[in-house]
Amino acid sequence: MLRVENLDVFYGDVQALDGVSLDVEEGAIVAIVGANGAGKTTLIRALAGMQRELRGRIVFRGRDIAGWPSHRVCNLGLGQVAEGRQVFPTLTVAENLDIGAMLPRARALSARNRERVLAMFPVLAERSRQAAGTLSGGEQQMLAIARCLMGAPELIMFDEPSLGLAPKIALGMLETIRELNGDGLTCLLVEQNVALSLKLASRAYVLENGRVTLAGSGAELLADDRVRSAYLGL
């Protein structure tokens, strides 16, 4: 569904990604693992069309989207739940969802999608008239996911969905991702909780200093000594 070939990304003179290649098959959960500054967020921003100084190919649903602006990327069905949740704090919960459904691909499905996400996160229905900025961290994360789902994506990239959340809520968040995947949604997951994300993932990549240094199934990487010592502290 998504294939990245030899992706180089630059911030001015600094090269942040160097020849990254990866594959996300339809229906899979693919995890990206790496230390802070390894280039995980840069990778997601590049795929989402938010970092457009790049070389290489990004093929999504058969089209090379490298260099496309983010609104076109989103409208092709490549959604994102960004690091830091990025809700619209002064807009109400309901308005945040409205904005999510503004993509041309999602407009007609807006009513149905809203029903679906509110069934999935009933707390958002309760707080629909409340400003998003007043929600708790966990609720904001739910809103960020719900807002993304309003755009009817086929693949969602999650960037640190459990960051800053209480452990119990963080677990619930990853459970949500598994459920969404069960419903047929393809997921690309960047997660600080390496052990959990590798357990969820059918395939995973290790990113170090802007390069993919290791790739394999989640189970393979979980068993890999280098991963165990560097990321799992074992």
């Binding site: 069309g49 609104h71 989103c74 960004a82 619209f88 002064t90 807009l91 308005e95 904005i99 503004m102």
Partner: peptide, 24 residues
């Protein structure tokens, strides 16, 4: 909806890009 989208851009520029608003 368009007005809300503009407010969304003002609220959170990154957020607007993330959900695929045509910010420009």
């Amino acid at each position: 909806l368009l007005g809300k989208a503009i407010r969304a851009c003002a609220d959170n520029h990154t957020g607007a890009l993330v959900v695929g608003l045509d910010v420009e």
